[in-house]
Each structure stands twice: as C-alpha cells, then as structure tokens.
Design a protein around this nucleic acid. Sequence first.
DNA 1: GATGAATGAGGCTTCATTCAT
DNA 2: AATGAATGAAGCCTCATTCAT
Lengths: 227, 227, 227, 227
Amino acid sequence: MSGSIEVQLEEMHKRVTQHEILGSALDRELTEKRQRQIVESASGVLFEKGYHRTSIRDIAAACGMSMGQLYHYISSKDDILYLIHVYSQEIWYEHLRDAGFQSITDPVARLARALRLSLEFIEGHRQLYLFLYTESKHLEREHLKLVLELDDKNVVGFYRHLLADIPGLELDAARRDTAANLVAFIVVFLALRGWNLDTSRISAQVDFLMEFVFRGLGLQLPPASER
Amino acid sequence: MSGSIEVQLEEMHKRVTQHEILGSALDRELTEKRQRQIVESASGVLFEKGYHRTSIRDIAAACGMSMGQLYHYISSKDDILYLIHVYSQEIWYEHLRDAGFQSITDPVARLARALRLSLEFIEGHRQLYLFLYTESKHLEREHLKLVLELDDKNVVGFYRHLLADIPGLELDAARRDTAANLVAFIVVFLALRGWNLDTSRISAQVDFLMEFVFRGLGLQLPPASER
Amino acid sequence: MSGSIEVQLEEMHKRVTQHEILGSALDRELTEKRQRQIVESASGVLFEKGYHRTSIRDIAAACGMSMGQLYHYISSKDDILYLIHVYSQEIWYEHLRDAGFQSITDPVARLARALRLSLEFIEGHRQLYLFLYTESKHLEREHLKLVLELDDKNVVGFYRHLLADIPGLELDAARRDTAANLVAFIVVFLALRGWNLDTSRISAQVDFLMEFVFRGLGLQLPPASER
Amino acid sequence: MSGSIEVQLEEMHKRVTQHEILGSALDRELTEKRQRQIVESASGVLFEKGYHRTSIRDIAAACGMSMGQLYHYISSKDDILYLIHVYSQEIWYEHLRDAGFQSITDPVARLARALRLSLEFIEGHRQLYLFLYTESKHLEREHLKLVLELDDKNVVGFYRHLLADIPGLELDAARRDTAANLVAFIVVFLALRGWNLDTSRISAQVDFLMEFVFRGLGLQLPPASER
DNA sequence: GATGAATGAGGCTTCATTCAT
DNA sequence: AATGAATGAAGCCTCATTCAT
C-alpha cells in the first residue's frame, strides 16, 4: 500500500487535466505551461490583497500579460482560484517526492516523515495555505466540488492510508477518517494561526506538533534520526 | 484565577464600546441593542453568500431596515464584519457562563469542560465559525488588529490560563502558548472541516477530539461524568 | 364580443406589471414612470444604431441618467428591449382607443377602421416597428416567450376576434388564425419594406393595402366615409 | 420578357464578383467556392446564435478553418453577412430554375408557379429568411446599399415583371411597384411569423396565401394542376 | 503559406455610500 | 428623523483583427 500516493497523484493529474479550463487557446501544452506561470505570478498579489480585492487587471499586470492574453488560458477569474488549489496539491506532492519520502518503508517512520515534511512545507508556504483555507469558500460550485474531492482523495486519503498501515493502531474506519482529517487540519496550523505564534521557534513548534499528534494517536514518536 | 475570563470579557466590552462610531451619550445603549439585532439578522445572508457577495442592500433587507437606518448604527460595511467577530466571542462566553462553567474548580475538569463546551458550541455554530475564519482576512487593518488582539487575549488567553493551572503539566511558557493556540484551533476543527466529516457521529467526534487533545498534552481525560 | 380588446389590454397591463423587472427601486409607481421615460428617451439611439450597437452608456446618456440610476429601473439591457415591445402594444392600443374605435358597431366597418388605424399608426412609427421585428429575436428566452404570448393574445387575438365577428366570412378556425396572423403581418408592411417604397404616396398605399386585404379575404371594402 | 430573371441573376453575379476582396486572377474561382463553403458551414451557428453573438472564432470552427485561412476569403465579419444575403438570392434563383420555372409561358400560371415555388422554398429555409430580415440592418452601409439594390432589382424586380406581364391587371406603375413589394413580403410570411402558426398545416397555408394574393390582386387562381 | 496567440478598447453590471426630500 | 434614489468608479469578460513565427 505504500506506493498509493503516487497512484493517487497520477489520478489527480488526470482529473485536473480532464477538466476543461481552456479559454480560447488550443495548444494544450502551452496552456498548461502558461497556467502554471499565471498561478505563480498571480500568487503574490492574491495572497496579499485577497481574492476579491484583487482585480483581473492586477492579475494580468502581475503576470506581465494583457487581459486578453490572460483569458486565453483561463476562462474566468474563478479558474485562477481553482488552479491555485490544484497547484498547491501538486507542489506538496513534489515536495514529498523530492524528499525521498517513498523510499521509507516502516509505517510509523513513514507517518512521522510525512508529518514533518508537510509541516515544514506548509510553514514555508504560509501565505498559500492561509489563502487556500480563506478563499476556497468562494470557489464556484463546480470547482468547489472538484477541489473538495481532490482534497479528500489526495490529501486526507494520503493520511488515511498512512494510518491504516500502522500496526496496532486501534482505530475503526470511522475514527480513522476523523483522524486523517484532523491530521490534515493540524498540519496547517502554523499557517492559519501563524499571526499569533512566535516565528522564531518554528522548528520547536514543528517538534511540538509532531509529539502532540503522535501522543494524541497513542503512538510513540520515532527517534529524531528516523523522522 | 478562575474568574479571569469574566474580567477579560468585561474589558472586551469596554474596548468594543470605546470604538463605537456614535458618541451621543444616551444612544449608546440603543445602539448596542440595534447592533446585536443587525448582526443576528444579517448572519443568515452573510453566511450563505459570503461577505463580498452580500450587499448592504441585502443586509438592510435582512434586518428589515432602510439603508439610512442601518447607517445610523454602523459606519461602514466593515463594521458589520467586525461586530460579528465581537459577537462570536460574546455568545461563546455566554454559553460557557450559562453552562455553569465557572463553578468548576478542579483544573483538569475545567479544561475538559471548557473543551467540550467549546467543541459543542462551535459545532452548533459551524457557519458562524466558518465565516469567521474565512472572512476575517477582509477586515480593515484597524478592525483586524482589534479582532486579533481580542482573540489572543480572550480566546487563546482563556486556554493559556487553563493550561497554566494544571499541575504537573510540564510546558514552558513558549510551549504553553503554542498549545493554547493549538487548542483554540482544534476546537474549530468540526466547523472548518465539517464538509468532509460524517455529521451523524458528532458526539463520537467530540469525544475523539477530547481524547486526542488530552493524550496529546500528556493528560488523562477525566471520567465522562466530570467533563 | 366588441369589448374584448379592452379586456385583453387590461390583462396585458396586469401581466406586464406582474412581471418583475425592478432593479433596486422599490416605488412601483415611480419605477413605471421612469421605465416609460427610459423607453421613450432610449428609442432614438436604439432605432438608429440597433440594439447591439447601442451601449448601455449610450442609453443612459440619452435618458439623461447615470448608469447606476438606469439600473435602478431595469435589471438588464434586455429589459429595455422587452419594455419597448410592451410599450409598442400599449401605444397602439391607446391610438385605437383615442380614435374612438370602440364606438363602431358594424363588424365590417370595425375591421376596416382597425386596419386603417393600424396601418397609419405603424406607418407613423416605422422605426419602432422595424426595430421590433428586427430585434425581437435577441430577447432573452423568458422575455421572448412573454412577448410572443402578448403578441398572440393581444395583437393577433384582436384581429382574430374581428374576423370572427364578420358575418358570411367562411373561414374555419385554422384559416382564421392564419388570416389574423397575415393581417398582423401586412399591417407592418410599410414599416418593414419602407426603404423600397415611394414615401410620397403613403395614403395611396394605405388604400391599396386595405383594398388588397379586403379583396384577399373575399370582403367588400366599405365606402371611404365608413372606414 | 420571360427570360429576364436569368439576365438579372447574371448581372447579380457580376456585381457580387466585382466587389470581391481578392483580386488575383486565378484565385477568383477558388475564392468563390470557398466563400460558398463558408456561408454554408457558418449558417448553422449564425442562425442559432444570431450575428452579433457569433464570434469569428465560432465561424472559423464551424468552417473547419483557422482564423487566418478564413480571413483569406473574407476581409471582415460583415462580409459574411453580405455573402449570406447574396447566397440567399442565388439559391432561390437556383430553386426556381431547377423546378423548370422558365419553361412556363402563360403569365398567370407563371405568377402562380413563382408564388408557390417561393413560398415553399422560403418555408424550407425559414431560419435563413428569419436571419436575413433580422440581421440585414446590421450590414455596413456599403454592403447594405448593395443588398437593397440587389433585392429591389432581382427579387422585387422579378415580381414586378411578372405582374407587368399579366393581361388585364389594371395597375399603374406605382401600384405595381407596391404590389411587387407586397408579394415579396407575403412570400416571407411563413418564415417570419412561423412561431405563431400551426406547422402541421404548411401546405394548406401555402394554398391559403396563394388564394389570398390572387384574390387580393383581383386575379383568378389557375386550377391546381397549373400552378 | 498558414497558424492562432496577442491586443486592448469597450461591453454590461454592481454597489458602498451620500443626501435631497 | 427617516427614506431610498442617485452616483460613477470599478468590476469581469469578449472579440474582430493583426502579425510574428
């Protein structure tokens, strides 16, 4: 079961790709490239001003594009919000992959590593995650549904699998689901409540959170060398 | 130390009142009454459509007021957002008070009860808390600052005090602060991730969360009769 | 049956009034007054430039209103198109009424008078009728449906009743319906093909059309004094 | 005089061709072929969405062409509108010709046959004729002038000639012109008011219209076998 | 030659706030 | 005092046409 995250992410990519966002541009490859550029360029303004206060003109300017060009690669402002959500899952996945996560075999070590990598990653992308939680509610119905599905499948699903693999963890399916959601939620703690936390102690806070989660689940945290 | 929350709330009221738009002496009381009415009437539309998509017209209509009248009690749309934040802390406080929270003396039992009352209260006001987390970012700087201060002082501060009172809890001030923030965060879990949770099992989930938090803090949950 | 047109028009007014167009203005009476002003002021530009080429800004300017004000009395550009259609039926009705049409009792004389009054009226409102036929296709589905219903009920219905009253006119219901539609169509001939007609001979053309229609129906045109 | 329509159509072709955008000698033929293809392919979208709501992109897609290719055969969107008008006259002419119209010699039978062929043809191309009447107003001045001239020359002119040929029809030139215009107008009745007519009785309606026109002109309709 | 990405003005509509009545 | 009509800037989005590749 340890390879499942790759499979999930594969599927995610497929689903994202299947969903038509295209404005009028026809070249699929160029479109995807530009969409990523748009997300990366637009993030700055969006995170700072918020979705509603950022105009399409602001975004176009931030992307160095004309408004018309922008609309060749998206078909509505809402698409950008959606793309950011997808993007966030992609880069999170890439982070795990690049950190060699999948080479770990021990289930508990896997959980520990996943937790630490996620905590650190999200801490490094505070604004992004704050934005995601803050603005997801404004997605249009169709996009919202997709995003929530992706989140349940890829993010929560990821933790669900990790928890299921751990021997001796006495959680029925229902509790395991709640636990997976809770982990996905706690992992985002530093981003959502960062304004009220001492930013000079990040690594201590990461440790604290890992201990908290492991103890909360009734598990023993592996020695530091193995997380 | 057990009375501190009341003191804090007193102060909160003062601060809120100080910031009021209208100054005329006798109107103060009426204004506050009307403001609460406004918040309570406007909540419906606001929670459903979101802050930006709800117009002042919508709000006036929901309140059964003319726009002119509405503007007698607020000075800008942002005021409403602010008032909702204050309101949320007030009714949370009232809930704790009405549940006889302050009569509990054992520190661990106090924490347990505070947790359960908060979890249940927030679960019963999901839309409100989702709104708070979703829209607080749109508060204007001055209001935002106030709200964050109130939250740190009254909400996080409340949990900070509870944790400080618990004997044998080995947390230095820094960790205690993180822990208090974390508790304030977890307490909101059911509202923020409710879309992905089995709503038929709320009370089981409340139990699960309480166990999780207590274990996470290295504490033993009191027997059910004493929570 | 001779009073039926009044009844029909009464109903038309009711239906029009029932149909919500209101922007944000609440005063029904003022709204209706302003809507008529809008129609009358906007006609000029609209007839000249056509619906699509006339911008909302053009219309607001022609009405001496700000764009915002305009939208207090309508809720979309399409509403204006709709209002013009309703307006056209109203003023046509008023023209017939003011010309004392309903005092005529002889069925054949009634038909002749209706025909002449309509021909003359439409000839005097060429641009309006050209506009109606040209742009009705661009009405949004809901409005289009309403307009077509009104036309069938009030305009075609009017001719249907006139034809039904005429003794010795051997038309089954189906043919009578076609005939009524045809009359409603021919009556508009001068407006729709006016560009190709000698405008100096209008009254001769009206006579020609009346003779044509009466002969076409197998009727004898009453002496000029009774038309 | 019976051959005159062919002559007129010849001339029409010439005029249309003269106005072509491209000059290069050999391309002429290809251009005309492509233009007809464009008109035929684009009709679907255009009739359904209307001229203004159909974008050049839509048209290119409907034609299976790139936008660049499309612009090799037209020089503006307005050209397409113009080409459709010309096309409509061409296929109408072809319909008459293919039905062996020119072999009829009796003037009254000619008129009857012309009427029936036109009524049937237009009924079979309702959308096209609705489009022509609806959108002709949007032609640019130069094209509009041409189209109106063509219509007066070829369509109205055709009926004018037919009427002129009929012995014993007491119409001065002015009335004859009005009558020709009226015939050209009535012939389009089924297309323009089709929405309000019983579509299951088309042939009965064609008969009714023919009787109506003949009676209206004071003529006797030839027996069915000779129409 | 052929493509389709790029332009950017201009389209319709909304809305917080004010102020004449 | 109370109303709600009025403002007008700013919002999102479209599209005929061009032109670098």
